[in-house]
Lab assay of single mutants.
Amino acid sequence: NKFNKEMRNAYWEILLLPNLNEQQKRAFIRSLYDDPSQSANLLAEAKKLNDAQA
């Protein structure tokens, strides 16, 4: 399933972002589970926040 693969990839990438705190990571991951079809958008948002907090 395409969404499962995308979601899994986004999950691990979000977990490994160094500048997000645990609460932020949990919020993004919760959103991933709520709507896996938004994986790419959520990952992009997480990366943007990660860069902003660098």
Rank of each mutant, 00 (worst) to 15 (best):
A10F: 04
L20R: 00
E6S: 02
L32I: 05
Y11G: 02
Y33F: 13
D35Y: 10
L32H: 00
P18Q: 07
R30W: 13
A52W: 12
N41D: 07
A52G: 09
Y33Q: 02
A27L: 13
I29A: 05
E13Q: 15
F28E: 00
E45M: 15
L43P: 01
L43T: 07
D34H: 13
L17T: 03
L20I: 08
E22I: 08
L20Y: 00
R30P: 00
S31I: 06
P18N: 09
K2P: 04
S31T: 07
E45F: 14
N1S: 03
S39I: 06
P18H: 09
K25V: 07
F3G: 08
A52S: 11
A40V: 12
A52Q: 07
E22D: 11
S37D: 06
P36R: 06
I14Y: 00
Q38E: 10
K5G: 03
L43G: 04
E6F: 03
N21P: 05
D51E: 15
F28A: 03
A40K: 12
Q38K: 13
K5S: 01
E13A: 15
E45P: 00
E6Q: 05
L20P: 00
S37Y: 10
L17I: 02
E45W: 15
I29F: 14
K25I: 07
N9V: 14
L17M: 08
E45H: 13
L43V: 05
K25R: 14
Q53D: 09
R26A: 04
R30G: 03
E6K: 03
N50V: 02
Q24G: 02
L17N: 02
L16F: 12
N1E: 07
N21H: 10
Q24S: 06
E6M: 04
L49R: 07
W12S: 07
S39R: 13
L15E: 02
F3Q: 13
K5H: 03
W12F: 12
A46M: 01
E6D: 05
K47D: 02
K48F: 12
I29E: 01
L49D: 05
R8T: 06
Y33L: 06
Q38S: 11
A52N: 06
S37G: 04
A10T: 10
N1M: 02
Q24A: 09
Q23F: 12
I14S: 00
A46T: 02
D51F: 14
N19V: 06
K2T: 14
D35F: 11
